[in-house]
Design a protein around this nucleic acid. Structure first.
Lengths: 122, 122
DNA sequence: GGCATATTCAACCAAACGGTTGACGATCGC
DNA sequence: GCGATCGTCAACCGTTTGGTTGAATATGCC
């Protein structure tokens, strides 16, 4: 498995690894601290970190005894772009979406989107 | 592997399956036609389709002998949202995207966004 | 030097994956 | 009914995955 997209998606397919990424969202962490909340051996977590690292999702830097793990969210970009290719399928066009964003940002005050909002979420 | 996020990401981790999804972006297809461009057995492709189906990424409907495969891009939504949690980097704000979808669906007629066209291409 | 801490390595295991082949069950068309 | 087509099932195979354990390698501290 050499394709970066393969490696990123495969890395994300494991709940332990997704949890690790979420933890790293808060702050950089040492390997031991990453492993602490999981009910598995340190070696197992270390393997997960290798997979995340090879996928480019984290970087690791050794300082003394401690190896610090740092989130590298840029690695998600290619995967995100790939997924957005299927967003075009949606009956909306991104062009209109960009205009929407501009419109949402530009009005200085008189912006009352809450008026009569129904909850369409299911 | 029961978690839907696990299944979606695992399904996306295989290049054959991603290629199948891309093909289905064009149009619905019969299993045999999906399999045609791949240098593997029909049975192998059939297995891939099962995985995609279990992940919710496609639906299948049998009409006579032929089983039609249809892309279900909505299944990508949860994964996309999860990734967006890491995506201060992400070019598209999904939160705004949701609002955009609502806004696009609700207005009845008075929709004149053409004023002041800018060049969005990058 | 010597011990504790931090992390990986190596060997092993069971289960899952991605593929094959051949048989099978439906369905279409004559 | 019969043959061709469509698709899945079942059994098998080699590789990968996710985990274990115990030993090994660095590094820090006294």
């Amino acid at each position: 498995m050499t394709d970066p997209l393969d490696m990123v998606f495969a890395a994300l397919a494991d709940p332990t690894r997704r949890a690790i990424l979420s933890m790293l969202l808060e702050d950089d962490m040492a390997v031991t601290d990453v492993a602490e909340p999981f009910e598995m051996s340190l070696a197992a977590v270390s393997k997960h970190l290798v997979i995340l690292s090879r996928a480019g999702l984290i970087s690791q830097e050794r300082r003394g005894r401690v190896k610090w793990c740092k989130l590298e969210p840029d690695a998600l970009r290619a995967a995100s772009v790939w997924m957005q290719g299927f967003g075009q399928f949606e009956p909306v066009n991104l062009d209109a979406f960009e205009r929407f964003l501009e419109a949402e940002l530009s009005p200085p005050a008189d912006h009352t989107p809450e008026s009569g909002s129904s909850d369409p979420a299911g």
